[in-house]
Design a binder for these strands. Structure first.
Length: 213
DNA sequence: ACATTAAGTGATT
DNA sequence: AATCACTTAATGT
């Protein structure tokens, strides 16, 4: 059993309360490290385990058949990937791609235990359901920001989410990257950013955006 | 100094 | 708002 996992679970996942469950996670989970930019899961891959994020942050992106990408949300320490449960359970290919936003560490739980613990440990079931609920809310928010808000609001939301997940208001990114994530044109993003800069919401530089509050 | 890549601009649809 | 066809600016070699 891995005592590092044990202590990190206690610290980052307080909702997982049963000692016995913590020990099982430590016994059957494996730690994996990723460097910023690493692709953790790609479209079309089959998933055999569920990740618990213990360090860093992970960017979750959706892609359609034509290769159009769309940013969905970030996973941070204490989060898990809700998509991976259903993916595992139904043996379907992944519809999403996950990339390490920063250097990140996750614990991989084999699907067999994810399933088993649902019936054995109330706090596990609770944790899974709560994660689902949270993610669902976040997705709905994302959907209506796509459906109803103008691009500049969406852009601001995107920048704020990025700042939050990185714990810094100085974002290292390019207009092109943002355009891909938001499924917009680079020129459009440049113009909107310029507008936001004039409004005093941020400061622009090459490869960087300084977000002001 | 030169090449490469990011960002800005105006016109067109 | 997207796309095109540039221009300008920043950066790496």
């Amino acid at each position: 059993m891995d005592s590092l996992i044990l202590s990190v679970i206690k610290e980052k996942f307080p909702i997982i309360a049963e000692i016995k469950l913590q020990q099982e996670i430590a016994e059957y989970g494996t730690i994996k490290d990723f460097e910023a930019g690493d692709i953790i899961m790609d479209y079309g891959s089959y998933i055999r385990s569920v990740p618990l994020v213990i360090k860093g942050s992970i960017k979750v992106t959706r892609e359609n058949e034509k290769g159009n990408e769309l940013f969905l949300y970030y996973l941070n320490a204490g989060d898990t990937c809700s998509m991976s449960f259903t993916c595992c359970m139904t043996q379907k290919k992944s519809d999403i791609k996950t990339i390490a936003e920063e250097d990140s560490t996750i614990i991989l739980i084999p699907i067999k235990y994810v399933d088993l613990w649902m019936s054995q440990y109330p706090s596990w079931k609770n944790f899974i359901l709560r994660s689902y609920d949270e993610r669902m809310r976040q997705l709905v928010e994302t959907i209506d920001s796509i459906a109803f808000s103008n691009m500049d609001e969406r852009l601001l939301k995107y920048l704020r989410a990025k700042a939050k997940t990185n714990g810094s208001s100085l974002l290292k990114t390019t207009h092109q990257e943002i355009a891909v994530d938001l499924h917009a044109s680079r020129e459009g993003i440049s113009r909107l950013l310029k507008k936001l800069e004039k409004q005093g919401a941020l400061e622009l530089g090459r490869n960087k955006i300084h977000l002001k509050d």
